[in-house]
Every structure is written in C-alpha cells, then in structure tokens.
C-alpha cells in the first residue's frame, strides 16, 4: 500500500511537478506564440505559392509545366527534415547564412506549395469541360474563364484535402527544434533537460493539444460539410 503511494507520488513528481511547470510556463508560452506565427506564415505563403503555380500550370506551357512537376515531385518525395538540414547546414557553405527559423519556414512553405499545387490542379481538372466551353462561348478569355468560372469551383472542391494537408504541414513546425528554433517542442525539451524533470514535456504536449485539437475538429467538420472525397 505504502509502496504504491510512493510510486504514484514519484510519477506525479516526475510528470506534474507544479513548481517546475510554473517555472517553464513562460518559455512554453513563448514557444506557443512562435509556433503559431510560424505556422500562420507558412500556411499563407505556401497556399499562395501553390495557387500561383497551379494557375501557371493551367496554361499548359511545356517548360513551366515541366519545371513545376519536377518541383512538386521533389518536394513531395523528400522528407521535410532532410530539406531543412540541407538548407541549414548546406547554404552557409556557399556564403548564405540561413537561420533555423528561416530554413524551417522556407522548407515547409515549399512543401505546402508542392502539395497544394497538386490539389488545386486536380480541382481544375475535375471542373467539367462544359464549364470552360460555356465561359469561352460568352466571350471570356482564357485567364478570365480561369479566374471567374473555373477557380471558384476548383477551390471549393479542394477545401477538404487542402485542410488536411495544411494541418499536417503546420504540425511539422515541430521539426524546427532540430535546427534550434525556439518553438514549443524546443522549449519543452530544453526545459526538461535543465530541470531533469518531465513536467515541461507534459506542458509542451498540452500546448500542442490546445493548439491542434480545435484544428483537427475543424478539419473533421470541413470534411463532412463539403462532403468531398479526400485525396
């Protein structure tokens, strides 16, 4: 009986030490804010770049299309951590110093752009041919048809797969910890090694849950709302 209580106390002391938690809470909050704004920046620029690439590709000019396909394939096939390390450790060799933050931002933006380009493209291809013909028959140009008729439908169709992909890539901001970005995971592991206690890790895990549980539930809602097969 006594032994059980001490076990339990040890467990509490290792994972839920309130004093330790209090001490590292400000750091975790800093990490939380950093994760948030890094994720938001990545989502905005990644989706914008993906949309631009998809529109360029819709013009079906062989050279640009080919380049975009190669870019999208490479960014989808490479593990993002490999690319982050490549930028972070490789670029200084050619005189370009990239911070860990910048390497993470650039990598995840490019990865999201690659995936979202493919999803937007699938949406454009899935819009019935009759829509193009109707738009062109009323005298709209190619670009106008794309902008006013095709893209609004394509984007609507792509919302669920895009939401899922975006959430997955936003979570990858945790990879920044490997190159010293002070986001949640980094703050949590630093706190853990300084305090010799697992409570900062628990705090970090809670921070991720607070941040991403609503996002995951939102993704679920989007999926039923738009009732469209995921890709």
């Amino acid at each position: 009986m006594n032994a059980e209580i001490t076990q339990w106390d040890r467990f509490l002391a290792s994972f839920f030490d309130l004093a330790v938690m209090q001490k590292y809470l400000p750091n975790i909050v800093d990490g939380f804010l950093l994760t948030c704004h890094l994720a938001i920046l990545i989502v905005i620029s990644g989706l914008a770049l993906g949309l631009i690439l998809a529109v360029i590709r819709a013009y079906e000019f062989w050279l640009t299309s080919w380049l975009i396909v190669v870019f999208a394939d490479v960014m989808r096939a490479l593990p993002p951590l490999v690319f982050i390390l490549l930028l972070y450790f490789g670029l200084p060799g050619v005189g370009l110093n990239l911070s860990g933050y910048a390497a993470t931002y650039v990598t995840l933006t490019l990865v999201l752009a690659a995936f979202s380009e493919e999803i937007f493209r699938a949406g454009i291809l899935a819009t019935p041919k009759g829509q193009w013909e109707a738009a062109r028959s009323t005298g709209l140009g190619f670009g106008q048809s794309l902008a006013y008729v095709i893209m609004p439908q394509a984007i609507r169709m792509t919302v669920p797969p895009l939401t899922n992909r975006t959430i997955a890539i936003a979570k990858n901001t945790a990879l920044g910890t490997v190159v010293g970005v002070g986001e949640i995971l980094n703050q949590a592991t630093t706190g853990q090694s300084f305090s010799g206690n697992a409570s900062p890790l628990v705090l970090g895990a809670l921070a991720y849950l607070i941040l991403f549980i609503p996002v995951v539930i939102f993704g679920r809602w989007v999926e039923t709302r738009f009732a469209w097969r995921r890709t």
Partner: peptide, 23 residues
C-alpha cells in the same frame, strides 16, 4: 484518432523517448 492526429509525430516520439524513462 483526434488525440494522436493533434500531436506532431516528432512530439510524440520525443515524449516517448525522453519522457517515459521518468516513469
């Protein structure tokens, strides 16, 4: 499903690798 989808996989891995020894 939602719980583990909310965790970045690296966080889960580190929690298991660095956290469980404390237990």
């Amino acid at each position: 499903v939602d719980f583990f989808r909310a965790f970045p996989p690296l966080v889960l891995l580190i929690f298991i690798y660095a956290g469980l020894p404390f237990a």
